[in-house]
Amino acid sequence: MSKTKEKPKNNWRAWLYLAPALIILLVFTVWPIINTVRIAFLNSYNGLAERGGATFEFGFYNFEYVVSISGFSRSLGNTLLITVITVPVSTMLALLIAVALNSIKPFRKIFQTIFFLPYVTNAIAIGMVFFAMFHTVTLGSQTLSTGIINSIIQAFGGKPVNWIDAGSSWGHNMAVVCIYIIWNALPFKILVLLGGLQSVNKQYYDAAKVDGASRFRIFWRITVPMLSPMIAYVVITGFIGGFKEYNSVVGILGETMGPAGGDRQLNTMAGCIYDSLNDGFQGYAAAAALILFAIIFAVTMINLYVSKKKVHY
């Protein structure tokens, strides 16, 4: 700060270099955000109508409306549940896999590649693969063909389960979506945690070995605390991602946000926003987006507060 004050003549140059990024950010990020806030407080705002010269009153009607529609509370519930299940489970799995990967030498690269596949593959494409895996085609009471999951269940003598097809239950849908999200979330978390593990000074492990700590204790008392900054990062980004979850549900269940012919039983918060957009009421969508933002903001604040207390150094 003080440096720029000492040499103000160089300022224009700094702005010049920053200009391309700033302009793009202003046009495509800052302005849309401001506009979203504006729209959210204009009752029943509709872009087309505004073009036609209509004016809208300032007020909270959009928020009242969004909260009152029946799909909203269910979407909120689904989103919360997805987040609460997938973030801890995927973090713990990623931690175990990262530690395991870090302790093997011969096939590390191969395993790293395998675990990383979901990260480089399109989410919708993987969703369709999941759909095929859990899909079952029936005609009346007759099963024509089953996906691999049901085949496995049958091979072990179980009855095929209707995971995602018409008439399937909310619980089954949710299970498939959660499995998908956890699997899809692993690579990034493994990558971050593995990087963290490799930067931990080996001497701590030598010291712990001399101190006679068991493997389990080394994991809990050395590895986990040493990784706590990375774990906090992964959890916080996981929560944010979880609240914005949308494309996994679309990928598996399609735009119906639930089994075909159902009542959008697996809709999420982000789904709600898109629904409002599809209905042409940008005002409702903006209000829903602001509500989602407020929730994510609050949860992240809580996360940061907790991690400040729990994360070491």
Binding site: D206, A207, V210, G212, P225, H312
Partner: peptide, 20 residues
């Protein structure tokens, strides 16, 4: 194994556990 030898080892940069 090191833990069964009854040794105490002080490392060059101490290797104190920073979170404890």
């Amino acid at each position: 194994a090191p833990e069964n030898r009854g040794i105490g080892l002080v490392f060059q940069n101490y290797a104190l556990y920073p979170h404890m």
